[in-house]
């Protein structure tokens, strides 16, 4: 350890490399152990949401599906806040479920944004929200348009 290292350590500028090694390892091992690429994880997430949505209305905005590893055991953690339960489960591949399940990556992303604007604007209107979910994703997001649009609208 050089004098400069020592001074840096005293001033708290630099973490000891052992601590860095531990943190970096834990991160890389969490990925190694899960052995699922992000694409597959995303697909699984969408399919899980599809199934759950058939039975209950969930707050898509605050849904969180992730992998966590502790003590060599990798667990799939899903946190899906329920808004209300459905009286009758929707048939397979119908309604809001199909929109999410069959949608490709970007479409699903757009759906998420769509629900976000919906839920913040009018919470009690659950019917409107599900219909919006079922519709095509492109027509769904009037508020969050491409970055080029707003300036063009403002200028005149």
């Amino acid at each position: 350890m050089t004098v400069l290292d020592f001074i840096n350590r005293l001033l708290g500028r630099e973490k000891p490399s052992g601590t860095m090694a531990r943190q970096r390892l834990q991160l890389v091992l969490a990925h190694d152990r899960s052995d699922l690429n992000p694409e597959l994880l995303d697909q699984m997430r969408r399919e899980i949401l599809e199934v759950v949505q058939r039975y209950v209305e969930i707050d898509i905005e605050s849904c969180d599906v992730s992998l966590e590893t502790e003590d060599r055991v990798t667990a799939l953690l899903a946190n899906l806040p329920i808004k209300r339960t459905r009286e009758f489960p929707l048939p397979i591949g119908s309604g809001s479920g199909s929109g999410i399940g069959s949608g490709s990556g970007p479409a699903a992303l757009a759906l998420d944004r769509g629900t976000r604007t919906d839920t913040s604007a009018q919470r009690p209107a659950a019917g409107a929200e599900t219909s919006a979910l079922a519709g095509p994703s492109a027509s769904l997001v009037p508020g969050t348009t491409e970055p080029g649009d707003p300036p063009a609208g403002i200028q005149p």
Binding site: P16, S17, G18, T19, A21
Partner: peptide, 17 residues
């Protein structure tokens, strides 16, 4: 290890379990 410039024994046993 005492200088924390290396993964400690506990680090390795914790990580590998």
């Amino acid at each position: 290890m005492a200088n924390q410039e290396m993964l400690s024994v506990d680090d390795v046993t914790d990580i590998l379990a």
